[in-house]
Amino acid sequence: MNALHAPRTPRALSSTARRLLVLAVALLLLGGVAVAATLHAAGRAAEKDRTRADGPPVRQGRVTLDEPGRAVFRNMAWGPHRDELTSVPAGDPAGPRTASGVHCLRFHTAGGTGICLQAVRGGLRDSYRAVVLDVRLRETRHYGLAGIPTRARVSPSGRTVAWTVFVSGDSYAGSNFSTRTSVLDTRTGELDRNLEDYRLIVDGQPHRAADVNVWGVTFADDTRFYATVATGGRTHLVRGDRTAKTLETLHTNVECPSLSPDGTRVAYKKRVEDASSDAPWRLYVLDLRTQRETPTAEHRNVDDQAVWRDDGTLLYALPGDFGSDLWTVPADGSGSPRLLTKAALAPAFTPAGTAR
């Protein structure tokens, strides 16, 4: 074959050409990753927008604590009114919401008085305060809090309020936590800052210990209440008396009690055997006269202080798409749980004769 027409043998690429080729491939790969990330972010944003669109409608308006047949709760739906107190008809809890403009982490109302536990933004870290509200949600008093808000209650007359905060730890599920519970007379301003200062009687005997914690007040009237006391590795239902400054144990393994409208039963969360340490509680009801316990038909973990929607129905929060949803279940152990409304927390009723 003529050497002039012989086929050429490909020569190895120069080092410069190889580097250029590697760079081109890398740029293509990075471009593909950027496009994929952009598409993924757009998809997540669209999904979030759909989630917000699926949430309950909320509009600004007038909210009071004396309008009959209303439910008031912390709105958890995404948007400009998240964490505000909102109102809905008690008969249509999933209906359109009226937002008050008042922000609360925890809330309760009775007798025309509201207690709102708020975060105060700013500085190096958030602080917290308890705000007493009148019937038109105007502040009448406020008090700085020593920790993270967790529980709040008002007596049926509205003359006494209570709140609980975590001063260390952030969950009742663990053993390393400490609480502080305060009770306030809204007429005189007298404040019992720490119920651990009350005289504690355990099984009929005076009891003093460094590990005492008190939380979850529920009122019978302006001076008598029930709460949880933990000491010695056990939790107790206690009956409290503001006049005598005493706490007396009644029953064990009771947390976050809620007194029924007729004053005869207490709903509470109970630690059950063989449950996960992260989800230990089930919802029970205790007959105060007979001390008989009844498990409800709610078999999921309930980490909330339930309220009584009426004499036979409990209302409580469970985790949901927006952070928290409200569910109901019969108090006598019958029936089954039912979703009441999405994106809500800390419910109460106005006028509040049933949400203790």
Rank of each mutant, 00 (worst) to 15 (best):
A3R: 11
H5W: 12
A6H: 13
P7Q: 02
T9E: 11
P10L: 12
P10A: 12
A12V: 10
L13W: 14
L20N: 10
L21Y: 03
A26P: 02
A26F: 12
G31H: 01
V35I: 15
A36P: 02
A42S: 13
A46C: 03
A46I: 05
A46N: 10
D49I: 08
P57L: 08
R59E: 15
R62W: 06
T64P: 01
D66Q: 12
E67P: 00
G69H: 09
R70W: 03
N75L: 07
N75W: 01
G79K: 08
R82I: 05
T86A: 13
S87A: 15
V88K: 01
A90G: 07
P93I: 05
A94I: 05
T98V: 14
A99S: 15
S100H: 02
S100M: 04
L105H: 06
R106T: 13
F107R: 08
H108Y: 06
T113F: 00
G114D: 04
I115Q: 12
C116G: 05
L117T: 04
A119G: 15
G123Q: 06
S127T: 15
V131R: 11
V131T: 14
V132S: 01
L137D: 07
R138S: 13
H142T: 11
Y143G: 05
L145G: 00
S155T: 02
V161P: 03
T164V: 04
V183C: 05
E190V: 13
D192N: 14
R193G: 14
L195T: 08
R199V: 10
V202T: 08
G204V: 00
R208W: 09
D211C: 05
V214R: 08
W215I: 04
G216R: 10
A220W: 08
D221N: 15
R224M: 08
F225C: 00
A230E: 15
A230P: 00
G233S: 07
T235N: 14
H236L: 14
V238Y: 10
R239C: 01
G240I: 02
G240K: 03
D241L: 10
T243W: 09
T243A: 13
T246W: 10
L247S: 06
L250W: 14
V254F: 01
E255S: 15
C256F: 07
P257H: 09
S258N: 03
G263W: 06
T264Q: 12
V272D: 11
V272A: 11
S276H: 10
D278K: 12
R282G: 09
Y284H: 15
V285H: 02
V285S: 04
V285R: 03
L286Y: 07
Q291A: 10
T294N: 04
E298P: 02
E298R: 03
R300C: 06
D304V: 06
A306Q: 00
V307S: 07
D310E: 10
P319G: 04
D321H: 07
F322Q: 11
G323S: 07
W327M: 09
T328K: 01
A331V: 05
D332A: 09
S334A: 13
P337M: 06
L339H: 07
L340D: 14
G353Q: 11
G353A: 14
